Amino acid sequence: MQIAVIDYGMGNLRSVMNALQQVAPDHTLTLTSDPAVIAAADKVVFPGQGAMRDCMRELTERGLREVVLDTASKKPFLGICVGAQLLFEMSEEGGNTPALGVFPGQVLRFPAERMQLEGERLKVPHMGWNEVHQTRAHPLWAGIPSGERFYFVHSYYMHTPDTSLIVGESAYPFAFTVAVARANIFATQFHPEKSHAAGLKLLSNFVAWNGVA
Rank of each mutant, 00 (worst) to 15 (best):
Cys81Asp: 07
Pro173Asn: 12
Glu92Lys: 03
Ala179Gly: 13
Gly83Glu: 11
Trp129Thr: 04
Asn12Gly: 10
Val178Leu: 00
Tyr151Asn: 04
Pro25Glu: 11
Asn130Gln: 10
Pro76Tyr: 12
Val45Phe: 14
Lys194Thr: 15
Ser204Ile: 03
Val45Pro: 05
Ser73Met: 05
Cys55Phe: 08
Arg53Trp: 05
Val180Leu: 03
Asn184Ala: 10
Val45Arg: 15
Gln2Lys: 13
Ala41Val: 06
Glu193Gly: 04
Tyr8Arg: 01
Glu113Thr: 09
Arg149Gln: 06
Gly199Pro: 03
Ser155Glu: 05
Arg182Gln: 15
Arg65Cys: 11
Val124Ser: 14
Pro25Lys: 04
Pro104Ile: 00
Val67Pro: 00
Lys123Ser: 08
Gln2Leu: 08
Gly105Asp: 14
Pro139Ala: 09
Ser164Lys: 13
Glu58Ala: 14
Arg182Leu: 09
Gln134Thr: 15
Gly63Phe: 10
Glu93Gln: 08
Thr32Asn: 07
Ala181Pro: 09
Glu131Gln: 14
Leu69Trp: 05
Gln21Ala: 14
Gln2Gly: 00
Phe176Gly: 04
Met90Asp: 08
Ile6Lys: 02
Thr60Arg: 14
Met56Glu: 09
Thr135His: 00
Val180Asp: 00
Ser155Arg: 08
Thr177Gly: 01
Ile38His: 04
Glu120Met: 12
Lys43Pro: 13
Glu93Val: 05
Ile185Pro: 02
Pro76Met: 07
His159Ser: 15
Asn210Cys: 10
Val124Met: 03
Thr30Leu: 12
Arg149Phe: 06
Thr188Asn: 07
Arg109Ile: 06
Thr60Cys: 02
Ser204Tyr: 05
